[in-house]
């Protein structure tokens, strides 16, 4: 039996008719076409599929899309503000906190939730906040350094400046 409902993603209500056994990750990528959310392990281990649900980071591989009905989902595509990168996005680019980039959307989701709760985290608090995100390039040092730089999470700048 399919289920028909609206899923709110990045402030937009997407009408869906889907098998309710499908994960949120599968629906975000396969139905809605928002492919910034990555499928890494599909085993709730790596954090590449992380999204915000009502502001809290959640692995979208481990939740059914139907369970997100009536919730507010934010993906990496919803983190950018118009043509301006978020402070966290710009900071990662400027400080070399991106290598292959596959883990980056999930890292940014985790960091966004962390900075919302704690605007001035210590490096240890950053490590805990990102502890559900694996980087197979093992670029953790630069990611944590980038997020620990003064100003990240507090200043914003145009999208062009980071590329």
């Amino acid at each position: 039996m399919t289920r028909t409902f609206d899923l709110e993603v990045n402030g937009v209500a997407y009408p869906l008719t889907i098998d309710p056994g499908r994960s949120l990750l599968s629906v975000l990528r396969g139905e809605i076409g928002l492919t910034g959310t990555k499928e890494g392990c599909d085993d709730c281990e790596c954090g590449a599929c992380m999204v915000l649900i009502d502001g809290q980071p959640v692995n979208s591989c481990s939740l059914l899309a139907a369970q997100a009905e009536g919730r507010s989902v934010t993906t990496i595509e919803g983190i950018i503000d118009g043509d301006r990168l978020s402070e966290i996005q710009a900071g990662l680019l400027d400080e070399g906190g991106v290598q292959c980039g596959f883990c980056t959307p999930g890292m940014i989701i985790s960091a966004t939730a962390l900075f919302a709760r704690n605007p001035d985290p210590t490096p240890d608090e950053i490590r805990v906040g990102l502890s559900g995100n694996l980087c197979r390039c093992t670029g953790y040092g630069r990611i944590i350094e980038a997020l620990a730089v003064d100003g990240v999470g507090r200043a914003d700048r145009p999208a062009e400046s980071g590329s």
Binding site: G47, P57, V58, N59, G132
Partner: peptide, 8 residues
């Protein structure tokens, strides 16, 4: 788990 798994 991690922060994201503890949230759900």
């Amino acid at each position: 788990g991690s922060p994201s798994t503890r949230n759900v």
